[in-house]
Design a protein around this nucleic acid. Structure first.
Lengths: 325, 325
DNA sequence: AAAACAATGTCAAGCGGTTGACATTTCAAA
DNA sequence: TTTGAAATGTCAACCGCTTGACATTGTTTT
C-alpha cells in the first residue's frame, strides 16, 4: 500500500502539500491538485484512515448502541442511521446491548477507546450518563435517559392521543393498553401512555393498562400472557399496543379465538414496521419518524460544535389507518 | 485521557513493560502486573485503540456488508454477526449496500482504508473479487460470489428438496415456486430451485416457476404481481417461496380471496424469520442456520492464518412445520 | 562460584498523516 | 519597479503504542 510520502515523491511535491490537498483543498492550486491526483491514481493510493484518526485525535466512526438488531423497529433505525452516517462520510460502528446496562457501558468505553466522533444510543437505561465519560457528543434516541444527554424523540404523547381519538371515534368503549415491559420503559413510553389515558378520559373511558414485567416478556410467551389477559377481560373492543409486534400477537390471538378484527376488536399498533402492512388484517398504527430522528441525530454529531445541542428535539408522529382498526 | 507513558511513570516502570503486559502478558511478573494495573485504574487509563491499530497495521474491526439492514433476514444476520464479533473482542463496522455494486466496492475500499481484520459480505454481485484488493480475509455468506472468495452457506439444494417433499407428501399436485428477483439471485437461489424442481420431478410434478424481474420486485408491489399470477394459475394447491416475506404476501393474497391456507393452498416459506411464527396462519418454512453461518464466518476471520480457509462451507437447514402447510 | 535464566530496563525507530512556523518563489496589481 | 498575496517548500515534532536489540539485575541451578 502506497503512503503519502510516496505519492508526494511521485507528484514531485512535499508531503505537506499532499496532506494539505487532502485536508484544506482550497489551499492548493488546481494544477498541483491534478498532478497529485494522478500520482495517487498511479499508485492506487488510499489514505490510511487509522493514521489520520490518530493524528486528528478523532475518527469518523459514529457508534450506535441499540438493544437489538433483530427487532424490526431497531432494524429500521439501524438502516436509517447507516444511510445518514454514510451520506455524511462517516462509518457506523454497531453495538447491540441486548438491554444490558453492563454491555452498554462496556460498549461506551470501547467507543471511547476508538475515538468515535459521537455516539447515538437507544437505551432504556436511565442515568447512564454517570457511568460514562466521553468527550464526544452523545445523543439518545426515542427516550430521554438523562438530563445531560441530548435526546431526539418522536411525539409520544400525541401518538397516544391519536390512538385514543381513533378508538373513541370508532365507538370502542372497553379499551386496553398493552405495553411490553423492557422494550418500552422510560419517558417516551410513559408519555405515550399518558397521552392515551388522558385523552380517553376526556371521552369518559378508563382504559385497562396491561404492562408486563420485563422478565415475563423476555421469555417471549406472548400468546400465553395474552390468553391470561383475555380470561379476565374477554369483553374488550379496542386495544392499543406499544408496538406492532404486540399488536400482531393480539390479532393472532383474536383470530384463533374467532374474534373478528376489526369487527369485534379494534387493534392499533405503534412504530409502523414493515410487518404492519403485511399482516392480515393489516395493522393500523402510529408511524414513528425514524428517518427524521436518524437524520437529526447523525447531523447533530456531524455538526457538533457548530451549533449548540438542544436538550431534546421531538418530531411528529402520524396515524396510519389500515385494516385492524 | 491518560497515556501509556503516564501509566508507566506512575507504576514506576517503563513503557515497554506496560506495553508488554498488554500484549504478551506472560512476559511480565504478576507483581509488576498488579502495580501496573493499579496505576491504570488510578489514571482511568484506556489504551488508545487507534494508536494500537496504526502500530499493528491492523484493527480489530470486522466489516459486514449487507444489502439491507431492515429486511428481517439480514436483521437476523446482523444480530448474530454482532454477537460473535463482540464475543471475540472485535467490533462491527456495518455497511448497507442496498444491492448496489458501486456501493459495495466503495465500502470495500473504505474498509481497506480502515485496516479491518476482515470483511464478511452478503452480496448478489458476482465477480466482485476483481474489483477489490484487500490483504485481509474476505468471507462471502449465503452465496458463492467468486471462486477466490471463501463462502459459507446453508444447504440450499436440500432446502428446496425438503419443501418439495413436504408439499408432495401433503398431496399437492399443482405447485408453484416464487422467487424474488434481486434478493435471491446467484448460486444459492438456483441451488434451492434446483433441489425443489428435481425433487418434484421425481414425484412426477412439474412446478410453475415464477421469478420476477428485479425492477418489478424492487417496486414492492407484491400484491399486484401475485394477483397477476393467480389470474393465470388460480388452481395451484401448493406454493414454495424463496423467502418468508413472499410467503406472507401470498398467504395475505389468498386470505383476501377467500382461499383457505393450508386447506386449499399450502405455502412454504424460506429463512424462518420471526414473522413466520407470528403470522396467522403461522408459516411453515425452511430454517436457515444464521447463527452457525455467522459464528463460522466470524471465527474464520478471527483465526485467519491459523488454518486454511475452505473454498466453501455449508451448514444444514431444517424444516419447521407450522400452520401454512 | 560459575552459569543460566527470568524479569525489566534502555533506547529509539517505526506506523502514516497532520500541522505550525517560516522561508521561498511566482505572478499580478499598484 | 515595488509590493503583496498566493502557492509551495522545508523541517520537524507529534498522535500513542509497538517492538527489536541489548544491557542489567537478581535469583536459581549445578
Amino acid at each position: 500500500m502506497a503512503t503519502l510520502r510516496e505519492v508526494a515523491q511521485k507528484a514531485g511535491v512535499t508531503v505537506t502539500t499532499v496532506s494539505r490537498m487532502l485536508n484544506k483543498p482550497d489551499m492548493v492550486s488546481p494544477a498541483t491538485c491534478k498532478r497529485i491526483r494522478q500520482a495517487m491514481q498511479a499508485l492506487d493510493y488510499q489514505p490510511n484512515e487509522i493514521a489520520r484518526s490518530l493524528s486528528k485525535k478523532t475518527s469518523n466512526f459514529i457508534g450506535l448502541i441499540v438493544p437489538s438488531a433483530r427487532n424490526a423497529f431497531f432494524a429500521k433505525v439501524i438502516e436509517r442511521m447507516e444511510k445518514h452516517i454514510a451520506a455524511n462520510g462517516y462509518k457506523l460502528l454497531l453495538c447491540v446491548s441486548n438491554h444490558e446496562r453492563k454491555k452498554e457501558i462496556e460498549y461506551f468505553s470501547m467507543l471511547k477507546a476508538n475515538k468515535v466522533a459521537g455516539v447515538i444510543i437507544a437505551s432504556h437505561t436511565q442515568d447512564i450518563s454517570e457511568s460514562i465519560s466521553i468527550d464526544a457528543p452523545v445523543i439518545s434516541i426515542d427516550r430521554i435517559i438523562s438530563p445531560s444527554i441530548s435526546a431526539v424523540c418522536s411525539d409520544n404523547f400525541n401518538g397516544g392521543k391519536m390512538a385514543a381519538d381513533l378508538l373513541a371515534a370508532k365507538g370502542c368503549k372497553r379499551i386496553a393498553y398493552f405495553t411490553g415491559g423492557v422494550m418500552l420503559r422510560g419517558m417516551s413510553a410513559s408519555l405515550r401512555q399518558q397521552g392515551f389515558e388522558q385523552t380517553l378520559q376526556q371521552y369518559g373511558i378508563q382504559p385497562i393498562i396491561q404492562a408486563h414485567r420485563e422478565d415475563r416478556f423476555i421469555s417471549m410467551r406472548y400468546q400465553d400472557l395474552i390468553a391470561e389477559f383475555f380470561e379476565n377481560h374477554g369483553d374488550i373492543d379496542g386495544a392499543f399496543c406499544s408496538n406492532d409486534i404486540l399488536a400482531a400477537e393480539i390479532i393472532r390471538y383474536a383470530l384463533k379465538r374467532g374474534i373478528d378484527v376489526p369487527g369485534q376488536l379494534k387493534v392499533i399498533g405503534y412504530d409502523d414496521i414493515d410487518l404492519a402492512a403485511l399482516y392480515t388484517p393489516s395493522i393500523t398504527t402510529i408511524h414513528q419518524p425514524v428517518n427524521d430522528i436518524s437524520r437529526y441525530a447523525v447531523e447533530s454529531i456531524v455538526h457538533y460544535g457548530e451549533r449548540p445541542l438542544p436538550a431534546s428535539t421531538v418530531f411528529p408522529v402520524r396515524l396510519i389507518e389500515r385494516e385492524s382498526a
